[in-house]
Design a protein around this nucleic acid. Structure first.
Lengths: 348, 348
DNA sequence: GTGAAAGCGCTAACAA
DNA sequence: TTGTTAGCGCTTTCAC
């Protein structure tokens, strides 16, 4: 965790940056004390309207920007929430976007740290802690329970879309089983029996969705029709699964993909092969991301509301930070099936 | 710019966070001075191997994380590059990802700030400056030249995918005209004459692509076939344009979309309508993003290499920060047409 | 309504 | 090889 840094790029350099104006500069120019300037910016009582105006005016003249490092250093609280994310999944992006207003509502600020090829969870989390994040919100990352537990020892952690199996880690997720049941119910109601699931492998929530699919199929007496194809939440996995189905002689009448991206791949591969959706095969996605909502995709999908997820995640964090909760919470949302044009009556 | 903050969420709170271990804590426990600990972490010469080891050991015991705020405050340089981005466009995401290694190569670190609904460029930039970003890299944002020029007065700014029209702002972009010419050449070579362009409206690079399309068409003696449909780089705009074409009686034999997302919409709407690509109509995208590369989309696209763009952007910044360049640079990359399965001989 | 002063956790120059 | 010292730009008492 503590790691020596590369010393080849010195922090002090010859060229570097010019000095930015400070509160002291403003104070000098406005003819007041630096502490008064601080007070004004913090909107605290104790300065005359005239002084306030003068301070703002000088600040504007000087092009002043508050120095976050100094604020952070001096303050006991940072009120910053660290967000760990990848930019791969549209639904994750929706959650990140929704976190801004959710955090802001409770007086928190968001700090982003991306996991990208060549920059793993560990580094991304390190950055977040270095920046004094008071909590870490993890969105669909590959961080292990062990890793998360280690962070949770330092700051509250919320794992999104995955049941937390680590001590001190809260989780916000949807009732995957319910979502899958809704999907299967919907399809069964349309007369489908041969319903195949393209799963998400080891991705967050995939195991629960798989289980939910199995249970729902059994409940409908479709045990013998249970069919799970391996996938990983990507378009290519969905497309590959679709091609495999086409290559076999057992094309199901309906497919439930592990997520929307996978469904997109299934849809694309089918359309290319001249298979009509939903005429020949019905397709259901999961997440109800932007992708599902596109008019030419028009995908029936299990909706996980990004706004709700974001708000509950921030709430979980706030409960720990502001209200002193110390026990784990596993927050489960109820998903809703959004029926669109990719599902219809079973063929024949 | 200088703005009073909301005082309702105090920086100091009752519950908040526990104290994190500091260098002083490590020093005390390891029986050395705090400055020696600092020296060890900075990997500077002047500490015995034994001391180093002891310091690291204690740090691990204590779960020490360096305090970025303090480092930042104390250091003359932050070596942080602020990146302004939205998460909407796959190509932008590719650039963000590529910026990490590019920055790291030159000893810089990346700080992200997202523009999302309800959080405009101004706020996102403010955050970046507050965090002591030494430069701002702007990716396909809606920030006005005026805004960018204002920031450029404080720190170097690189505008990606858009020709900088602001003082002190560098830009990194591809030769849009060349890209469009390659696309038109390719299509003309396949016998296409009725080549329509679905443009990107006011989006970055769209005007140049439009112009490039017109010029290329003229060069091929296809002036009378010039046809530009309004768009905005989104799937829905592409889909709408496709539907409009289908509704008319003038379906072109080829379409060049403003970007891959738009092409995706065109493709989707056509496929839905039973139009075969490339049998009936050829489609070309722009960006060569992940989307274009998907096997079931397989889109011929004008490639803008994200890695190159990222490296040149960081280079431009480094030239200003480390080498003292003060004049503007407009860096133009040559794009390459990547031919895939969405283009073929003109019908009839 | 205003100012002086202390100190957040570090870096960096200097002394020992 | 190690320790001392002085801030970085702010927030936050506590005096005036």
């Amino acid at each position: 965790m503590p790691q020596a840094e590369d010393a080849s790029h010195p922090r002090t350099a010859t060229v570097g940056r010019v000095r930015r104006p400070t509160m002291t500069d403003i104070a000098a120019r406005a003819g007041v004390s630096q502490s008064l300037v601080s007070l004004v910016f913090r909107n605290q009582p104790g300065a005359s309207a005239q002084t306030r105006e003068r301070v703002f005016e000088v600040a504007r003249e000087l092009g002043y920007h508050p120095d976050g490092a100094a604020q952070l250093l001096r303050s006991t609280r940072s009120r910053q929430l660290g967000v760990l994310f990848t930019m791969r999944h549209p639904h994750d992006v929706d959650i990140v976007e929704a976190l801004y207003p959710a955090a802001s509502q409770r007086g928190y600020t968001v700090v982003l740290s991306a996991v990208v090829p060549g920059r793993d969870d560990q580094q991304a989390i390190g950055d977040l802690l270095r920046m004094r994040s008071e909590a870490v919100i993890v969105i669909g990352s590959g961080a292990s329970p062990r890793q998360l537990a280690a962070i949770a020892g330092q700051v509250p952690v919320v794992d999104i879309n995955r049941r937390s199996r680590a001590d001190g880690v809260d989780s916000v997720r949807t009732a995957e089983a319910t979502g899958m049941r809704q999907a299967v119910d919907h399809l069964a109601g349309l007369g489908h029996q041969a319903i195949t699931h393209v799963d998400g492998g080891a991705m967050p929530g995939a195991a629960e969705r798989r289980r939910g699919y199995r249970d729902a199929m059994r409940r409908h007496g479709l045990t013998r029709n249970i069919n799970i194809l391996p996938g990983d939440y990507t378009e290519e996995a969905g497309a590959q699964a679709a091609r495999d189905m086409l290559a076999g002689d057992d094309l199901p009448t309906a497919i439930i993909a592990g997520n929307d991206r996978s469904a997109h791949g299934v849809l694309g591969a089918f359309l290319r092969a001249g298979i009509h959706v939903p005429g020949d095969v019905s397709v259901v996605g999961y997440d109800d991301s932007r992708l599902a909502q596109l008019s030419f995709i028009d995908l029936t999908s299990v909706r996980q509301d990004a706004t709700d997820v974001a708000e509950l995640a921030v709430q979980a964090v706030a409960e720990r930070l502001d209200e002193g909760r110390t026990t784990e919470r596993d927050i489960v949302l109820q998903p809703t099936l959004i029926v669109r044009g990719s599902t219809g009556h079973a063929r024949r």
